[in-house]
Amino acid sequence: MSDLPSLSVNGQSQQLNEDEASELAKELKQQLRNGEVPAADGESIERMVAGLGDPRGLMRLTFAESLGVVGKAAVPSLCRALAEHESVTVRRAAAKTLTLIEDPRALPVLQKALLQDPDPVVQGSAVGAMAAVGEEAIDGMLEILINPSSTAMQLGLASWGLAFVGARAPEALRKAATSEHAEIRCAAIAALGDQIQALGDDAARELVENALTDAETDVRAEAATLLGKLHSPDWAVPRLEPLLSDPQGQVRKNAALSLMKLQAEGSIANLSQQLEREQQADVKAVLQLAINQLDQDG
Rank of each mutant, 00 (worst) to 15 (best):
C79F: 02
V69A: 08
M48P: 01
V90R: 03
A74R: 14
M59K: 15
A64I: 00
F63C: 12
L82A: 06
G68R: 09
E84G: 05
L58D: 14
S66K: 11
E65C: 02
K72G: 13
R47C: 02
V70M: 13
G53H: 11
L52G: 05
L61P: 06
I45R: 07
R80S: 15
R56H: 14
S66V: 06
R92P: 00
H85T: 02
T89V: 15
T89S: 14
M59L: 14
C79Y: 01
L61N: 15
A93Q: 13
G68L: 06
V69E: 07
E46T: 03
R47H: 09
G57Q: 12
T62F: 01
A50T: 07
E84F: 04
S44Q: 10
G53E: 12
R91P: 07
A93Y: 02
K72Q: 15
A81R: 05
R56L: 10
M48V: 00
L52C: 05
M48L: 04
I45W: 08
V88D: 07
L58K: 12
G68T: 06
H85G: 02
G51F: 06
A83E: 13
V69M: 06
M59I: 14
M48F: 01
L58A: 12
E46P: 08
A50V: 06
V88W: 01
G57M: 07
A83K: 13
L52E: 04
I45Q: 10
K72Y: 13
R56K: 15
V75E: 08
A83N: 12
L67N: 11
A81Q: 06
M48S: 01
D54A: 10
V75M: 10
L52S: 04
M48W: 01
H85C: 05
S87V: 00
R91T: 03
I45G: 08
G53Y: 09
A93H: 04
K72H: 15
E65L: 08
G68P: 09
